[in-house]
């Protein structure tokens, strides 16, 4: 493929009904590029969970997706409250989401664990009061593009 493709999305933190539009767009782009369907599925699930998290917890932010020959990299950056205890946040079932978020089908403490489950690498950088940046990578096989 040569030069990596880079796409940036602004995530609106106000509108829950629009959450997922960026993930949908990335999924379509990957399909058009002929990326392996298992990698598309992993990327779509992980990015969608991340996108939902940005709306629920951080009032939106920015997602940058870099598609190169060997991997899909997603960088999710927000200016939210930060994650006080990453180890706890990674436990399935642990959630700090408001009850109304649960009534929308999320906030069950599966977001971060799902993001880890469906990616090959995940790194969390967080500063309390300043924001969180999560970098996730899904590897592509050499014949993936």
């Amino acid at each position: 493929m040569g030069e990596p493709l880079i796409y940036t999305y602004d995530i609106d933190g106000e509108d829950f009904t629009r959450a997922g539009e960026a993930s949908s767009s990335v999924k379509n782009r990957l399909k058009m590029l002929g990326v392996d369907s298992a990698a598309i599925r992993k990327t779509a699930i992980a990015m969608y969970e991340g996108e939902i998290n940005m709306v629920i917890h951080a009032d939106g932010g920015t997602i940058t997706v870099i598609i190169s020959d060997d991997a899909i990299t997603m960088v999710l950056a927000d200016r939210g409250p930060g994650i006080p205890d990453i180890e706890k946040a990674m436990q399935e079932g642990y959630s700090t989401a408001r009850p109304e978020v649960r009534s929308l089908g999320f906030g069950a403490g599966m977001g971060l664990p799902n993001m880890k489950r469906f990616t090959d690498e995940m790194k969390i950088d967080t500063v309390i009061g300043q924001g969180t940046t999560i970098t996730m990578k899904v590897y592509l096989h050499s014949d993936g593009l």
Binding site: G20, K27, R41, G105
Partner: peptide, 15 residues
């Protein structure tokens, strides 16, 4: 039994 747009989005992500 959940009824909001994220149900359709979730279905989309999973084909």
């Amino acid at each position: 039994g959940l009824c909001n747009p994220q149900v359709v989005r979730t279905a989309e992500m999973l084909d």
